[in-house]
Amino acid sequence: METGIHELTAGFALDVLDADERWAYEAHLEECERCRAELTSFWETTEALAIATSGPAPSLDLRGRILTAARVERQVVVPLEPRRRRLAPVLGAAAAIAAVVALAVGLWATQLSGDLDDARLALERERQAAAVLADPNARTIALETGDGRLVVEDGGRAVLVLDGLGPAPEGKTYELWIFEGENASPAGLFSGRDGLDWVGLDGAVDAGDVVAVTIEDAGGVEVSANDPIVESAPV
């Protein structure tokens, strides 16, 4: 169990683990800072996207209070109680506060831009990524360049989990690629973010393929002349 216990984060967040897996993961979570951070980040992203697809834009007064709360929240560190039964409430409260702040600011920005279609598309991609990460039969592939991992389902759906990549430079975007031998196919664009990030690939990843990320001009390219900044081992 310990070897693959880090891979249970998505399943725990989605409440799809069996009783033994959940007990083992909760016990592990008390000792693993990486998994606590990944779990909180997972909850923040999915809940923020879920609510960002509907509802009215906040007033200027509410926006000010939201942003103030966000600045305060970044300074708060929530310690874990030593008893396992206290773990879920403590993490749940911290994630709920962070998620409310994130989703409210995200909703405000989305309403101002009028880009709800993009928000719904992003939500659907997050749902698909969550399904892959929660699949107990999915394989985990190490990265040869960059920090993180590649998770691939038997059917070829794949999610790239990245740690510390950060947002793309201004005027640039990150582009995903699936390499089949020397042939590279574009597999989606993403803007990146601080801390943990995960993004689903457009297209199936087959045995022997390599997944990579390059930095491109906004809008992406069909053929890249840039060296990958992230590259997986062969699947």
Rank of each mutant, 00 (worst) to 15 (best):
T3R: 11
T3K: 14
I5V: 13
I5W: 04
H6S: 00
H6W: 07
G11S: 09
G11Y: 12
F12T: 01
A13P: 03
A13S: 07
A13H: 00
L14A: 14
D15L: 08
L17C: 10
L17T: 03
A19S: 15
E21A: 14
W23A: 13
Y25T: 08
E30N: 12
E30K: 15
C32S: 15
R34F: 15
R34I: 12
C35I: 12
A37G: 13
E38K: 08
T40E: 15
T40L: 15
T40I: 15
E44M: 11
T45Y: 00
E47V: 10
A48I: 03
L49R: 02
L49Y: 00
A50M: 04
S54F: 06
G55E: 07
G55A: 07
L60M: 10
R65S: 09
R65P: 00
R65N: 09
R65K: 11
I66R: 02
I66K: 03
L67Y: 06
T68Q: 11
A70M: 09
E73W: 02
E73M: 07
Q75P: 01
Q75F: 05
Q75E: 14
Q75M: 12
V76M: 10
V78A: 11
P79F: 06
L80Y: 04
L80W: 05
P82I: 11
R83D: 14
R86L: 09
R86E: 11
A88W: 14
A88K: 12
P89I: 05
L91D: 03
A93T: 12
A93I: 12
I97W: 05
A98I: 02
A98N: 04
V100N: 02
V101S: 03
V101E: 01
A102S: 13
L103R: 06
A104M: 14
V105K: 06
V105P: 01
A109V: 10
T110N: 09
S113M: 13
S113N: 08
S113T: 14
D115H: 14
D118H: 10
A119P: 06
A119K: 00
R120P: 04
R120E: 11
A122R: 15
R125D: 07
R125L: 12
R127S: 04
V132S: 05
L133F: 07
D135C: 06
P136V: 08
T140F: 09
I141N: 02
A142Y: 03
L143R: 04
E144L: 10
L150V: 03
V151L: 01
V151Y: 02
V152L: 07
A158H: 00
L162V: 14
L162I: 13
L162Q: 11
L162Y: 01
L165E: 06
P167N: 10
P167W: 10
A168Y: 13
A168C: 13
P169D: 08
P169F: 10
G171S: 12
G171K: 12
T173L: 06
Y174G: 01
W177K: 01
W177F: 12
W177S: 01
F179T: 00
E180A: 12
P186D: 09
R193D: 07
D197R: 05
D197G: 03
G200S: 11
L201Q: 05
G203I: 10
V205I: 08
D209Q: 05
V210E: 01
V211N: 02
V211G: 04
V213C: 04
T214K: 01
T214A: 07
D217I: 13
E222I: 08
A225N: 09
A225W: 08
N226Q: 15
I229T: 10
I229L: 14
V230L: 14
E231A: 13
E231M: 15
S232F: 04
S232E: 06
